[in-house]
């Protein structure tokens, strides 16, 4: 028995006169993991940005707990975590400062949690180095440290597995499934083959999106 958190009805979106998806229905409840699949250019990122409320050029309805999303934007944003292609890591700030700025915008926190989260993603000893000096994979890990601090029920992860090593991908998979088991909902796009049993796949690329 799961509650429906986020629901999309009859989504239609086009880009440069090309229809990316139309008549797309998607319902995400607590405990759900949805993988958006499809070839490059199929509209995976666009769909995730529509769901995040970033992209507003679409037709159709989005609802959050049954309320129209655009009326509940603050409430939704307090309960949604979006990780995009661009990690949102400021090069001149240290990983610790990056993480602190991000959490402070959202909720009160204890300082130890930030250190623990950075240790959790394997960045122990890198807390005070300017992020510009970190590798691409390490910068991605700083962004992923947000997942360890997150209380948000909904995660929207766009290509979250880019630039990180295979061991870390495995850990992320179990993080995601444990999150779903706790009642969270995860929508992600990736080209990795996930080892998740309870994962639904939404195939984009035709004119019709369907969930299996």
């Amino acid at each position: 028995m799961s509650t429906t958190l986020l629901e999309a009805r009859q989504l239609y979106c086009e880009r440069d006169d090309r229809v990316l998806f139309s008549g797309l229905d998607l319902s995400v409840g607590s405990g759900d993991i949805v993988r958006i699949a499809g070839p490059n250019g199929a509209g995976k990122t666009t769909l995730l940005r529509v769901l995040a409320g970033l992209n507003l050029s679409f037709e159709g309805g989005l609802s959050w707990y049954g309320y129209p999303l655009h009326q509940q934007r603050d409430w939704y944003q307090a309960n949604m975590l979006f990780l995009g292609h661009r990690a949102g890591i400021t090069a001149s700030l240290t990983p610790l400062e990056n993480l602190r700025c991000w959490v402070d915008m959202r909720r009160p926190h204890r300082e130890e949690l930030l250190w623990e989260a950075l240790a959790d993603v394997g960045l122990e000893g890198y807390e005070d180095i300017p992020s510009a000096h970190l590798s691409a994979g390490q910068q991605r890990r700083v962004a992923l440290a947000r997942l360890y601090l997150s209380t948000e029920p909904v995660w929207l992860l766009d290509e979250a597995f880019t630039a990180i090593d295979q061991g870390a991908v495995k850990v992320l998979e179990s993080l995601i499934s444990s999150r779903a088991a706790q009642g969270g909902a995860v929508v992600l796009s990736t080209h990795h083959r996930l080892q998740l049993d309870e994962c639904r796949v939404l195939e984009l690329g035709g004119s019709l999106g369907f969930a299996t």
């Binding site: 603050d74 402070d104 989260a117 997150s150 993080l175 706790q182």
Partner: peptide
């Protein structure tokens, strides 16, 4: 890396801490 998150899933009220964020 840790396979589990330390913070539980919590449904929050809409934005608090305006001064903290500012």
């Amino acid at each position: 890396m840790q396979p589990e998150s330390r913070t539980p899933v919590t449904l929050r009220e809409s934005g608090d801490g305006l001064i903290r964020a500012g």
